[in-house]
């Protein structure tokens, strides 16, 4: 059993434990979450379970796309935010809210994530290296951020503003199994595309020229990874809004355990992202704040310091993270 397999197994167990804890823990104290009375069944199986499952799937989608993009761009800071995918997905949703088509916000998020993927890949077709692709993405991301700020600026009333802000802060509150199925479907498509590109990602660690010399199809790898990341990010943002940081942090957290091979990092990163977001969501539910903290905020609050600590420890050992 390789280190990556051991890590995946441990993270799968951690994910199950986190999901089980998510059924148990919440603002309404439950003595026995498996009790068969109506109230308990509703709270546990119709509220907590879909919410926790959605959080896990969203985290897994973001972790997987982050790992794939870090491998493609050979940049440890890459994630779907850097390529503008999540920014465009959020922009799509925000446009739907701003023009009174809130019901179409998830669809708009998906469509805009794919538009960003097409723009990045088309403009980056002739790019000389991963840095150019990342720069195009940063430009797109800033553009989307500006347009989102404009929409907030021009919000027609406080109600619309509240909806827009809630979306941009990210949340899985009140999500149903339908939402979970939507993310799961796009995660499955995205994962299939990315896993097809795994060998290309592996070859890319040698550098583009060496990878091409050993027969890797770099153009195909690029398309598969970016479209796969767009499917994952679009699905996640469509359901949960913008949740940053998981895509950057999850691959780093598992790299120390599973090694630096980008192909072997994909599954553990997805599992780590899922477990991270379920834990963050449990924290959000239990914190006694006046209004529930948004998941995107909590993910950064919890993951940020942990990530900085790990990066600092690895740096002190002389390796990069």
């Amino acid at each position: 059993m390789t280190a990556a397999h051991r890590t995946s197994l441990a993270l799968a167990l951690l994910s199950f434990a986190a999901l089980a804890a998510a059924l148990w823990l919440g603002p309404t104290p439950l003595a026995d979450p498996f009790a068969t009375d109506d109230a308990t069944r509703t709270i546990v199986w119709e509220i907590r379970f879909p919410r926790a499952l959605t959080a896990w799937l969203v985290g897994a989608a973001l972790g997987l796309s982050g790992a794939a993009l870090q491998g493609l761009l050979r940049n440890p800071l890459a994630d779907s935010g850097v390529l503008g995918l999540s920014g465009f997905a959020a922009l799509g949703a925000v446009i739907a809210f701003a023009f009174g088509f809130a019901a179409f916000a998830p669809l708009a998020a998906l469509v805009f994530a794919f538009i960003a993927a097409l723009i990045v890949t088309s403009l980056g077709w002739s790019a000389r290296g991963p840095a150019s692709l990342a720069l195009i993405g940063v430009g797109l991301s800033s553009f989307a951020g500006g347009l989102i700020a404009l929409a907030l600026n021009l919000a027609p009333n406080p109600g619309a503003l509240a909806d827009l802000i809630n979306w941009t802060l990210g949340s899985v509150e009140a999500r149903s199994l339908d939402h979970a199925f939507l993310v799961a479907a796009f995660l499955a498509v995205g994962a299939a595309l990315i896993l097809f590109a795994a060998r290309g990602l592996q070859a890319l660690t040698l550098g583009e020229e060496a990878a091409a010399a050993i027969g890797a199809n770099l153009s195909r790898t690029r398309w598969l990874v970016i479209l796969g990341a767009a499917a994952c990010t679009g699905g996640a943002t469509a359901v949960a809004g913008i949740i940053g940081f998981v895509g950057v942090a999850a691959p780093h957290l598992v790299r120390a355990l599973a090694g630096h091979d980008p192909a072997r990092l994909l599954v553990p990163s997805a599992l780590a992202g899922g477990a991270m977001l379920v834990c963050a969501d449990i924290a959000v539910r239990l914190l006694p704040t006046d209004t529930e903290l948004k998941l995107g905020v909590a993910a950064a609050l919890i993951g940020g310091p942990v990530f900085a600590l790990i990066a600092a420890r690895l740096a002190s050992r002389g390796g990069d993270s």
Partner: peptide, 10 residues
């Protein structure tokens, strides 16, 4: 109430 789905339904 904080107004989350779970707290409201409870």
């Amino acid at each position: 109430t904080r107004g989350t789905l779970e707290e409201v339904l409870a």
